[in-house]
Nucleic acid binder design. Structure first.
Length: 472
RNA sequence: GGUCCCAUCGUCUAGCGGUCUAGGACGUGGCCCUCUCAAGGCUAAAACACGGGUUCGAUUCCCGUUGGGACCGCCA
């Protein structure tokens, strides 16, 4: 009895895939996967002047990076204009739509006038009963909305929402240039593609009653609707460029992990008790509209950053090796053709991944492991590379040179014997060494650092530090 | 302006009439751990917008007020 779930994500290619679109796609995807249904990708490119192929590519790129795979499509509405035309002809023939000869200019003038005098702008229906064409004017086609009664949108998230039909406009379904409009094609396509559920942002809630009447005009069954709350910027207005990065690929380029972004996005409006971190499998298993909230949510970059840090430290280092490579090049840690031993790199990443919140941070922190030499941070140099530490550094250098095995355990033994001999704290030795090894004062444990950098480079760096202090 | 939606810590949220001295997470402060930085642990400050009902009892249900948002296009 229960028909198979079919849902779609239908972005318009007038920009990159943004945070809000990605979340809409994610909820559709989760609902489809949870119900073992079908997820369709459809490109809403009826606006020829604003849609571009580059943006279609960008959207696909974003979806692919996020791992939101679709089962059918991408379909393009541009390819389906003939289909829409036949549907429109049918409505006109049946008297459910009519030609409108009003020009955009007069329409706009009337709208401004209505707004200025405090009235609700609404098409007055003056072409509704026109029998004769206006010579020399190519008409648009308007859909005839009922003007009495009411329409109920039964929404999975908001419950029943009632609209008075008298509020509904006779909307244009075919422009005078012959292209169909959104509110019309969305219905035709959702019917044609047999969508069982329409899951979209709640900026579309007000359009829904109009669309319902179009379904009815064709005698089609109305799908189930779910209108997702919006994502807002920190000032509680709709998220946009001025709130900072909003495109999905921007987060990719800043070194975020796709699963972390997805995890963050799903928690904007959805919850499962107190759980914060979910695997994709858990999300698919637990997803339900019952746990989707109704209130708009403010996008919080700090929490996303924290979550990404959590994902970083829980990602296998071997995987991180692959992911960090492009960033190593981008940050000039290695050259375009640079080669790094991946097993060694994985060990280095083991020590760094719980300290890096993004792949960019990871790449940068890898610099002192990979680079032939380090550059000293001025403050660190002044504080730790001084006369006081020189005897310890010299002594350590000699001890390390003769060490049988350059391992964590042996290194620690060596350090301890020196600090005990002089009655100093480990920090008094470790910090100068850290500056010598990394150029700065922050790093993983000093024994890990030495072990990974290896004896040869370690000795060279200690020598350079000693020379620096001696002013040679 | 009209229509529609929404309302728990600064932010994301748990709560589906008594379990609430309102729980978790991010961020912030303190402490612990400690060779630094992280990570981790502990801890502190921090919220039911307001006013009426309904009820033995409201954060929870209803109404209103206020506040915020979305839409009102030959954009989607």
């Amino acid at each position: 009895m229960t028909e198979k779930v079919r849902v779609r994500f239908a972005p318009s290619p007038t920009g990159f895939l943004h945070i809000g679109g990605a979340r809409t796609a994610l909820f559709n995807w989760l609902f489809a996967r949870h119900n073992a249904g079908t997820f369709v990708l459809r490109i809403e490119d009826t606006d020829r002047s604003r849609s571009t192929d580059e943006y279609i590519e960008a959207i696909i790129e974003g979806m692919t990076w996020l791992g939101l795979d679709w089962d059918e499509g991408p379909f393009r509405q541009m390819d389906r204009f003939d289909v829409y035309r036949s549907y429109i002809d049918r409505l006109v023939k049946e008297g459910k739509a009519y030609y409108c000869y009003c020009s955009s200019e007069e329409l706009e003038a009337r709208r401004q006038e209505a707004l200025a005098s405090g009235r609700t702008p609404k098409y007055d229906g003056r072409c509704r009963n026109r029998k004769e064409p206006v010579p020399g004017v190519t008409p648009a086609v308007r859909f005839m909305m009922p003007q009495d009664g009411h329409t109920v949108v039964d929404d999975l998230i908001r419950g029943k929402v009632v609209f008075e039909n008298a509020q509904l406009d006779d909307l244009i379904i075919l422009r005078s240039d012959g292209t169909p409009t959104y509110n019309f094609v969305v219905v035709v396509d959702d019917v044609d593609m047999k969508m069982t559920h329409v899951i979209r942002g709640d900026d579309h809630l007000n359009n829904t009653p109009k669309q319902i009447h179009i379904y009815r005009a064709f005698g089609y069954e109305v799908p189930k609707f779910a209108h997702l709350p919006m994502i807002l910027g920190s000032d509680k207005t709709r998220l946009s460029k001025r709130h900072g990065a909003t495109s999905v690929t921007a987060y990719r380029d800043m070194g975020y992990l796709p699963d972390a972004l997805l995890n963050y996005l799903v928690r904007l409006g959805w919850s499962y008790g107190d759980q914060e971190i979910f695997t994709k499998e858990e999300l698919i298993r637990h997803f339900s509209f019952e746990n989707v909230g109704k209130a708009a949510a403010v996008f919080n970059p700090e929490k996303l950053l924290w979550l990404n840090g959590q994902y970083m430290m829980n990602t296998p280092s071997e995987k991180l090796v692959e992911l960090v490579m492009p960033f190593l090049v981008q940050e000039s840690v290695i050259g375009e053709a640079g080669r790094v031993d991946t097993a060694w790199l994985a060990k280095a990443i083991d020590t760094l991944k719980e300290r890096a919140k993004t792949l960019v941070e990871l790449a940068r922190s890898l610099r002192y492991y990979i680079a032939p030499e380090v550059e000293y941070d001025e403050k660190a140099k002044t504080k730790f590379l001084n006369e006081k530490s020189i005897p310890y550094l010299v002594e350590l250098r000699e001890a390390l040179a003769g060490l049988s095995e350059f391992s964590h355990a042996e290194l620690e033994k060596t350090f301890r014997s020196i600090t005990e001999k002089h009655g100093i704290k480990l920090g008094a030795l470790a910090q100068p060494v850290r500056v010598a090894m990394t150029g700065g004062t922050e790093s993983p444990g000093i024994f890990e650092v030495l072990e990974i950098v290896g004896r040869e480079k370690t000795l060279a760096r200690l020598d350079k530090a000693i020379r620096t202090i001696e002013g040679r």
